[in-house]
Nucleic acid binder design. Structure first.
Lengths: 255, 255
DNA sequence: ATAGGCTAGTTGTATAGACAAGTAGGGGTG
DNA sequence: CACCCCTACTTGTCTATACAACTAGCCTAT
């Protein structure tokens, strides 16, 4: 473990500097799977921080899934590859960029209309209220991947229709123009077959397998801000997910 | 907020008692969405614990997704319904019980065989190594839901074939007999069409939409212990998932 | 040889206090 | 009325310390 990694003048918290430093060692291979991470005491002594600060750094590493702690034994590097990217909400643009593909969209509809019952229920508004509806074909490297249809309560972004270029990133516009930061997305995925119109737009035979997604996105307080229904080609899309089996459910406090 | 909720003699940690108490208030409706949870100071003063202990209780609430904190403002009850059940690894038996259905299985194969390349790679063993293979039809209330095919390195459970009743819960047997506690599952889901044999076993027309799952499960240290390929009827199964958009990725330490 | 105890090292829980940084509201000044 | 400052309250970070609970290894006594 290299010393002198800390900048005590920085606005970056100490525990976070330590976490990033350890993360770098894991990524570079200096710390390999199964090996012990420096103990709380060791970090505390060598970097001149309190044990609680060292502890916070290790805990944040564990929350990333990079390490795991065992009482009485120590903290060890987890053997599992991916650190994150799971369960991260990513916009279509972000997801494609991460995979190295060139994202593009063809706009099918961009309009204000009244909410259907399904949309109103998900967004917790009245069916009389109006929403902005944006229907797009999503493409990666000019190949059609899916069809997405977003709905946003019009009250949240009154001038979106005038000022937003629907071929660009909706999430980015919501964040920068209206301060709407999406925190959580609930998603339901189903499997189905492409209908005639969908097949034509996606350039696949009718009856080809597809994913059907129904997503609702919330800001931090839990207020719903976006409802999306989409269809994706099954031959070009898969769902990757990580599930954890939590230990402490409702039993006693034993680890 | 009710006082005297703490048992200082108990083995249950104080912060956990406080967390459970607040969780109860949220569930009972005494604390509603958007309302502020008692502040760290308030808990500290009223229950006679230190601020750090109160803080730990609130933080654990936030990790459950039940609440969220805003610096300078307070901690508030999140408006989102489900607290957990997302991203929890559940065995088939557990999942069916939770939904109130009666789980049953029909065993198609239960044998020791050598690992295929795909299986060996996922379990990080040699293709020469032997694995236990268990192929079952999964049923809920006597209706076929899917076909699952599990593979477990034989070294982990040498006498499984002799001592395990393959109609019961595999996870339970692994935990109780061999101390194998699954901590993480990585899952890939694809959409496809039922082939002839699959359609016959699931009693659906050939070409019906299905989910294809590929799951690898790991124990705490990251060692893979189970590899499963399965097929589920799309008309009786959907994937529910919650994604979060993390704020602190690699930027500075600002919240 | 085995059982038991002792010790050093680890994480888990808890306390008390300090300062920083952000929010909200009141009150005074212009 | 509008603006600014000040204050009170909140969460975020950090320190220093203490004891409990658990692990692993060593050593001793049986």
């Amino acid at each position: 473990m290299i010393l002198e990694a800390l900048d005590r003048q920085s606005v970056v918290p100490l525990y976070y500097q330590i976490q990033q430093h350890l993360l770098g060692q894991v990524r570079s291979g200096a710390l390999k799977s199964g090996q012990p991470v420096p103990s709380e005491q060791a970090i505390s002594a060598r970097l001149g921080v309190s044990r609680m600060t060292a502890r916070q750094a290790l805990k944040s590493l564990c929350e990333l899934g990079v390490a795991y702690s065992q009482r009485g034994k120590g903290t060890f590097v987890s053997a599992i590859k991916l650190e994150k990217d799971f369960r991260q909400v990513l916009s279509f643009s972000e997801e494609m960029q991460k995979r190295g593909a060139r994202p593009r969209s063809r706009v099918l509809a961009f309009e204000a209309c009244s909410a259907s019952v399904e949309v109103a229920e998900a967004l917790r508004i009245s069916p009389a209220d109006r929403v902005i509806r944006l229907r797009r074909i999503r493409m990666a490297n000019s190949l059609p991947l899916g069809i997405e249809c977003s709905h946003i309560p019009i009250g949240l972004c009154l001038d979106l229709i005038e000022n937003f270029d629907p071929r660009t990133s909706l999430y980015r516009a919501l964040a920068s123009r209206y301060g709407i930061e999406i925190a959580i997305t609930d998603e339901v995925a189903e499997a189905g077959l492409a209908k005639t119109e969908e097949a034509r737009l996606l350039r696949i035979p009718k009856g080809s397998p597809i994913f059907l997604f129904t997503r609702t996105s919330y800001i931090h307080s839990g207020k719903p801000v976006e409802f999306v229904k989409s269809i994706y080609r099954a031959d070009r899309y898969k769902i990757v997910n990580r599930l954890t089996r939590s230990r402490k459910i409702a039993s006693e406090g034993r680890n």
